[in-house]
Simulated assay, not measured.
Amino acid sequence: MATQSQFPLSTRVIAAFDFDGTLTQRDTFVPFLAHLSWVRLAAALLRSSPALAGYALRLRSNEDAKMALCRHALRGRSRADLARVARAWVHTIPLRPALVRRLRWHQQRGDHCVLVSASPDVYLEDVARLLGFDDLICTRMQVDAQGRLTGDFDGHNCWGPEKIRRLVERFGAPDQYELYAYGDSRGDQWLIDAAQHAWYRGQAVKP
């Protein structure tokens, strides 16, 4: 996958795809945690329930609630072990054929395809390789000197305005290229608003 310095200046089109609910038929983060350990997930949900309830009541941010769950579910896990699990697990994720066809259309045209998701890098790196994305922008998990997850994020949760901020940081403002955006939830709205062409829940809202 390309880095900012490797982004070809001749590329005039970027296609930015959300993952959960857009390319997939359901959320993937909680199922990934369940695949790792149902017991640990259940304990993590219980211990992070105050933060999750606060988010549901709009008293806590999306980022606070998600980080609380990550701390209880992933802290201390080996990054290398998670990568091995993810390589096998990502093949089981149910995808939306129509959106995969749309991705292939962009790839056949030679557009620069970017996966932009709030889901974590611990499995999205493998998803991006599997689907042939040129770039990945996502929530990054912090890793300590021993190669274990701390449970905290390395940067911010890649949701809402953070998605477009990170896209602009990497590629520049959308008026410098033609942006296609694909999303399905409130967290994608900033990306949808910035794009010249956009699809929301499979429907063209900016043809």
Rank of each mutant, 00 (worst) to 15 (best):
S37H: 06
F171C: 12
H35F: 13
R87K: 14
G183S: 05
D175R: 13
A181R: 01
T3W: 09
G172A: 13
R84K: 10
L45T: 07
R148D: 04
P120H: 10
H112Q: 12
C113V: 15
Q4G: 10
R104M: 08
L23Q: 00
W38L: 12
S117D: 03
R102N: 09
V127K: 00
L124V: 11
Y182V: 10
V205K: 06
F32P: 00
A73G: 03
R75Y: 04
C113N: 07
S61A: 14
L136V: 11
W190G: 11
P97C: 07
A56V: 13
P161K: 13
T28W: 01
T92I: 05
W159Y: 15
V205P: 04
F171W: 13
P8K: 05
A16R: 00
Q107R: 08
L136G: 02
Q142P: 03
S117L: 03
D134S: 10
V168Y: 03
A68S: 14
R77E: 07
G183I: 04
A204F: 07
Q189R: 15
Y123A: 02
D134I: 09
S61I: 14
D193S: 10
A43W: 09
R140V: 14
L82R: 01
A98T: 15
R47F: 11
M1R: 07
L59W: 15
R60S: 13
H35A: 15
L115V: 11
Y182C: 04
E162G: 03
A195K: 00
Q146C: 06
R201P: 03
V100F: 03
V85P: 00
Q203K: 13
A53L: 14
Y177W: 13
L130E: 14
H35V: 09
W190D: 15
E162S: 06
Y55P: 02
P8H: 06
L52W: 03
F171R: 01
M67S: 13
P161F: 08
C158G: 05
M67K: 09
R96K: 13
A42F: 07
D121W: 02
E63R: 05
E125L: 14
L45M: 12
L59P: 03
L57Y: 11
Q25H: 10
A44S: 07
P120F: 09
A73I: 05
A181F: 04
K206M: 09
I192M: 08
L149R: 00
N62K: 15
L23C: 04
A173Y: 09
S10A: 15
R40H: 06
R75W: 05
V85G: 00
R84T: 11
V127L: 04
P120D: 06
G54W: 05
G147H: 05
L115M: 14
L82W: 03
L9F: 12
V30G: 02
Y182H: 06
G183Q: 01
V39P: 02
L46D: 04
L52D: 02
R140Y: 08
A15T: 08
V85T: 09
G54V: 11
D144E: 10
D111F: 08
W89H: 04
A51P: 02
I14A: 04
D144I: 10
F171K: 00
S5W: 12
G172K: 07
